[in-house]
């Protein structure tokens, strides 16, 4: 097994173990902290895809910002920390059904796609290339992003004001 495959399996294991801890922890703070190895593992997978700009973003946004926000929310919620959260409710059969459908869909995709070795050079994901595509072909999407951020902020403030 070469170094790349070894790194892939190690990272995949990190993502899966972290993800498992997130869903099975009965303590919400533990669940939130378990996101850290999961998200860092995903960042590592981006490295294997030669996408180091995306890797850095993954760490900065997902680990450094979203996890912190989730922790804030948990600490703000009455009775959410230290509490043993109930892991089951009456929706279990429905959830099983949805998960079952998803598994079937994933299996169909996995089995039907002709997975071969990649052809041609790896696409460049360095900041320069990303910048050129933001500013030339995808300029509209780029500008609309700022509107999306504006809308999210307005929404958050409206919701928090109503409840606060």
């Amino acid at each position: 097994m070469n170094a790349e495959a070894l790194a892939f399996y190690a990272l995949a294991a990190m993502v899966l173990v972290g993800g498992f801890l997130v869903v099975q922890s009965r303590n919400l703070v533990h669940a939130a902290i378990s996101l850290v190895p999961t998200l860092l593992g995903v960042a590592g997978l981006y490295v294997l895809l030669n996408a180091e700009f995306v890797t850095a973003i993954q760490i900065l946004i997902y680990v450094g910002a979203i996890t912190v926000l989730i922790l804030f929310v948990i600490l703000l919620t009455e009775g959410a920390t230290g509490l043993r959260v109930r892991q089951r409710n009456e929706q279990v059969p429905l959830a099983l059904l949805v998960c079952g459908i998803l598994v079937v869909l994933f299996l169909v995709v996995l089995l039907r796609v002709p997975w071969g070795p990649p052809t041609g050079p790896m696409p460049a994901y360095n900041p320069g290339a990303v910048g050129r595509s933001f500013l030339m072909p995808y300029v509209l999407a780029f500008e609309v992003t700022s509107l999306v951020i504006l809308a999210s902020l307005v929404g958050a403030i409206v919701v928090a004001r109503r409840e606060g």
């Binding site: 902290i33 700009f53 850095a56 760490i59 900065l60 450094g64 360095n126």
Partner: peptide, 15 residues
Amino acid sequence: VGILYFAAVSSLTVI
């Protein structure tokens, strides 16, 4: 991605 990397890993301190 040097300085972006620096910003990213320093943000881990908060957690």
